[in-house]
């Protein structure tokens, strides 16, 4: 008993120190897990953004802008539902021989993969499935995103960067009225805990669709 009384202060402090160190260790572990999760989400977003940008930049490639409408329009109106784009189809031509092209059709289909609770609310998760059709062939599945998208939206923009509600018919009437394609999406971190500071990673990009043809202007750019 005397030993306990003698060392009471030291004992209490030892317990406090042990508790603090344990808390520190647990937080550190949770932080590492959340960091890995965020990096995975970032990598998935970056990888998806790269191939979507490549795809959309090639929209209308080799197509003859002088051909009669609607054969000169390189996209279908994006199909939206519940605030997300569920289907988007666009075209480009593959040059086979001189004066001979094959139409390549690419389609993005958004499919629900499940739900995840984020900040106490259930959030739907999606996956973009990419399909391709060459000439008169059949649709073939050709890649896709991770199944952790929280949001996906494709908009066709006018010269004021405002979304056009029915771009296919607008472009059929006046091809120069649709200027660019905007894609926005978010990726949900695959596993989360109390230390996860960023649960959803967002991404947005805008790609020029065509020039208005009134003058010749080229551009090159950089960001920092």
């Amino acid at each position: 008993m005397l030993f306990i009384y003698d060392n009471l202060t030291a004992g209490l402090i030892m317990v406090s120190v042990a508790l603090l160190l344990t808390t520190l260790q647990m937080r550190s572990m949770k932080k590492s897990v959340s960091k890995i999760s965020r990096n995975v989400a970032k990598e998935q977003a970056q990888s998806f953004a790269t191939w979507v940008e490549d795809d959309l930049e090639a929209m209308g490639e080799n197509m003859d802008p002088g051909s009669a409408a609607p054969f000169n329009v390189e996209f279908e109106t994006p199909v939206d539902s519940a605030g997300v784009t569920t289907q988007f189809t666009f075209y480009r031509d593959s040059v086979v021989t001189v004066d001979s092209t094959v139409r390549v059709m690419i389609q993005y289909q958004l499919q629900k993969t499940g739900t995840k609770e984020i900040d106490g609310e259930d959030t739907d998760l999606y996956q973009v499935r990419r399909r391709e059709k060459v000439g008169s062939g059949s649709w073939k599945s050709d890649g896709g995103s991770a199944g952790t998208l929280g949001y996906f939206e494709v908009d066709m923009l006018n010269r004021d960067a405002q979304p056009i509600s029915n771009p296919r018919s607008v472009a059929t009437a006046d091809p120069d009225s649709v200027r660019s394609t905007r894609v926005r999406f978010s990726v949900v971190a695959p596993f989360q805990n109390q230390q996860t500071s960023l649960r959803i990673v967002h991404f947005g990009s805008v790609m020029l669709l065509r020039d208005d043809g009134t003058e010749t202007m080229t551009g090159s750019g950089s960001g920092s």
Binding site: L157, R159, D160, A161, R179, S180, R182, R184, V201, H202, F203, G204, S205, V206, L208, D212, G213, T214, E215, T216, M217, G219, G221, G223
Partner: peptide, 29 residues
Amino acid sequence: EEMATGIAMQTMEVVRARAFDAATAGVPG
């Protein structure tokens, strides 16, 4: 930064959609 870049790209498209100069506005290609 990621979101701001998206906004900047969108704004750039608005500027790029305009004529190079007042003197070239409406001039055929």
